[in-house]
Write a protein that binds this DNA or RNA. Structure first.
Length: 428
RNA sequence: GGAGGGAUGGCAGAGUGGUCGAAUGCACCGGUCUUGAAAACCGGCAUGGGUUUAUAGCCCAUCUAGGGUUCAAAUCCCUAUCCCUCCGCCA
């Protein structure tokens, strides 16, 4: 959510900036609503002030034992007038709020302007792409031949876009997650965190999945009149970041750096034809997530750092990648600046997204009132939140299978994973 | 699942219809004293919103949340959530 004051005062500039990411802000409607809000709020508060004054004098008169009937008469229909205004105001505020929650974040000045992913800008490449002396197979073929990937059974048991892994492939999947967690906790300073996989609507609102992107989620418990619904997490970013919701963190405790390995659940609504083959786009996949809560002045440096932490995983695994900065038109809803890391997949002869690292600035923090207090500051201020995949485990498995394949269909286990696999050097 | 008890400022804890945004203590910040520190003493100390050049004033809201009663609600009523105790069940 953007700063309502900023939105109000810099309406034109905001609309212009949002237009670069393809969001059309209805300036006319907003300014009309805002004008109405202003006058309505003032008259409502005036009525309240009048009523409060009457009530107070009734109390004082009673204390002195005076007759309160004359004052009571003066009150008249103030109450019903006030009620009507209150309802009107509440409806208006509701409308303004729902607009505010649907407006994406402002892109940072350092994000390139562009309309879609074709205008993302590569910032660096790492690693040497291996030349195969044979025709490289894709992970589906490799995994099925090894008896490690069973798409058919998963379809029977649940449906498409689910997977069953077995044997050494399953073990490698586990090893990858362990390796990533260990790297981030021992070398990058993150605190390992275990989180709920079901989250309530307040949390989803806080990180920005709601109100706009509810159709991307699996809802396990519907919302009722009183109670909130629960949904499966689409990413550990939701529970991790929401730890800070409605809290004030001491400046001395910043930055907060959290990591968690969790399954993620996405309905992938609207992507029916895309990536139907293999593990690339699943309804359920594992991910090691990185989250940082930092002071505003530190957030851009933290984004570079966090992106580097994700890249390090690929470097240790010896997987070639490139890093791109997303253009304004391709960025996620809450992000001000995003780096995507793309790993080399030989069978597809291309780089595929394996991590997305974003600086949300105060966009999420404002929604969830996540704040910090500096010792010399009078008031708490909003934090900046960042998150990134470090990495998507399933896609990393794909990359290892494909990049480390041998001509006979066996897979060489990357050095760093061997301690996690009982010293195993070859899957075959 | 059954029975009961709770939820108040950073923390502890008063407050059962009217000058209560809320006593008191602790913590914290500033000052006096002191070579310095501690103690003691004095003062300050919630958040959000509106208006405004203003983090000055003024106004509104907030005692878990949402409804209700009333001229007036921390206080009374209803609902939800969470916590605690006991019983049952359970990894």
């Amino acid at each position: 959510m953007l700063d309502p004051k900023f939105l109000r005062n810099e309406l034109e500039a905001t609309a212009e900036s949002l237009a670069t990411r393809g969001f059309i802000l209805d300036v006319e409607r907003l300014s009309k609503l805002e004008e109405k809000r202003k006058s309505l709020q003032m008259t409502t508060e005036e009525l309240q002030a009048t009523r409060n004054a009457f009530s107070k004098s009734i109390g004082q008169a009673k204390a002195k034992g005076e007759d309160v009937a004359p004052i009571m008469a003066q009150v008249g229909d103030l109450g019903s007038q006030l009620d009507a205004k209150k309802i009107e105001l509440a409806q208006l505020l509701e409308e303004l709020n729902s607009i505010a929650l649907s407006v994406p974040n402002l892109p940072d000045a350092s994000a390139p302007i562009g309309k879609d992913e074709s205008e993302n800008v590569e910032v660096r490449r790492w690693g040497t792409i291996k030349e195969f002396t044979f025709e490289a197979k894709d992970h589906v073929e490799l995994g099925e031949n090894l008896g490690g990937l069973d798409f058919k059974s998963a379809v029977k048991i649940t449906g498409s876009r689910f997977i069953i892994m077995k044997g050494q492939v399953a073990r490698m999947h586990r090893a990858l997650a362990q390796f990533m967690l260990d790297l981030h906790t021992t070398e990058h300073g993150y605190t390992e965190t275990y989180v709920p996989l079901l989250v309530n609507e307040d949390s989803l609102m806080g990180t920005g999945q709601l109100p706009k992107f509810g159709e991307d989620l699996f809802h396990t418990k519907p919302a009722t009149e009183e109670g909130q619904g629960l949904s499966l997490i689409p990413t550990a970013e939701v529970p991790l970041t929401n730890i800070a919701r409605d809290t004030i963190i001491d400046e001395a405790d910043l930055p907060v750096k959290l990591t968690a390995h969790t399954p993620c659940f996405r309905s992938e609504a609207g992507s029916y034809g895309r990536d139907t083959r293999g593990l690339i786009r699943q309804h359920q996949f594992d991910k090691v997530e990185l989250v940082q809560l930092v002071k505003p002045e530190d957030s851009m440096a933290a984004l570079d750092q966090l992106t580097g932490h994700a890249e390090k995983v690929l470097e240790k695994l010896g997987l070639p990648y490139r890093t791109v900065i997303l253009c304004t038109g391709d960025m996620g809803f809450g992000s001000s600046k995003t780096f995507d890391i793309e790993v080399w997949l030989p069978a597809q002869n291309t780089y595929r997204e394996i991590s997305s690292c974003s600086n949300m600035q105060d966009f999420q923090a404002r929604r969830m009132q996540a704040r910090y207090k500096a010792s010399d500051a009078k008031k708490p201020a909003l934090l900046h939140t960042l998150n990134g995949s470090g990495l998507a485990v399933g896609r990393t498995l794909v990359a290892v299978l494909e990049n480390y394949q041998n001509e006979d269909g066996t897979i060489t286990v990357p050095e760093v994973l061997r301690p996690y696999m009982g010293g195993l050097e070859i899957i075959g």
